[in-house]
Amino acid sequence: MPRLFRLRRLALPLVLATGMGTAALASEHDCRVPMADWQPIAAVNALMQKRGLTVRRIKIDDGCYEVKARDAKGNRVELRLDPGTLRVLEPERQDDD
């Protein structure tokens, strides 16, 4: 019985450490740009037009711009942008609907 108790005592810290590692990975895609350094929404719209996309929605998620748009063929496109540089942080996701 004492051995089982020791195993249980070790299990909790391992589970917590694993969860903390997952949270750290999830926060890699967060943007940490001060609001004073953000590009305006108009610049996001201009960039999307330059890429040939029609913007449907721009929102802020985890401190980043998240853009939902449609390409010339009408496919849905989702982009996540750094608000300071407007660099694409995640590859485009397209849904053929």
Score class of each variant (00 low, 15 high):
27 S>A: 10
75 N>M: 10
49 Q>K: 08
53 L>C: 04
26 A>G: 01
21 G>P: 06
49 Q>S: 07
22 T>M: 14
22 T>C: 11
57 R>A: 08
73 K>C: 06
83 P>M: 06
70 R>S: 11
34 P>I: 04
29 H>G: 07
50 K>T: 14
72 A>P: 07
75 N>W: 14
14 L>A: 13
16 L>G: 02
12 L>C: 06
75 N>A: 14
60 I>P: 00
95 D>N: 10
22 T>R: 09
44 V>P: 01
6 R>V: 07
6 R>C: 08
80 R>W: 14
41 I>M: 06
63 G>I: 08
34 P>T: 08
41 I>E: 14
9 R>P: 01
42 A>S: 11
72 A>R: 11
75 N>G: 05
51 R>S: 08
83 P>G: 03
37 D>S: 02
55 V>A: 01
27 S>D: 07
57 R>E: 14
2 P>R: 14
46 A>M: 04
31 C>N: 00
84 G>A: 13
84 G>Q: 09
48 M>Q: 14
43 A>F: 07
47 L>R: 09
58 I>N: 04
78 E>C: 03
44 V>G: 02
68 K>R: 13
77 V>R: 13
32 R>E: 11
85 T>P: 04
22 T>H: 10
9 R>Q: 12
24 A>G: 03
36 A>F: 10
78 E>S: 08
61 D>Q: 10
72 A>H: 12
67 V>A: 01
13 P>S: 07
13 P>E: 12
56 R>N: 15
3 R>C: 03
82 D>A: 06
78 E>F: 10
97 D>L: 07
45 N>S: 09
36 A>K: 13
18 T>N: 05
43 A>R: 10
74 G>C: 09
93 R>K: 15
2 P>K: 13
24 A>W: 13
37 D>L: 04
33 V>L: 03
82 D>T: 02
51 R>Y: 09
48 M>A: 05
22 T>D: 05
1 M>A: 05
40 P>D: 08
15 V>N: 02
34 P>V: 06
13 P>K: 04
34 P>M: 07
30 D>W: 11
38 W>K: 00
59 K>Q: 13
87 R>Y: 11
45 N>P: 00
74 G>N: 12
82 D>M: 04
2 P>D: 12
97 D>A: 09
32 R>H: 12
56 R>F: 05
37 D>G: 03
25 L>P: 00
16 L>D: 04
33 V>D: 02
33 V>R: 04
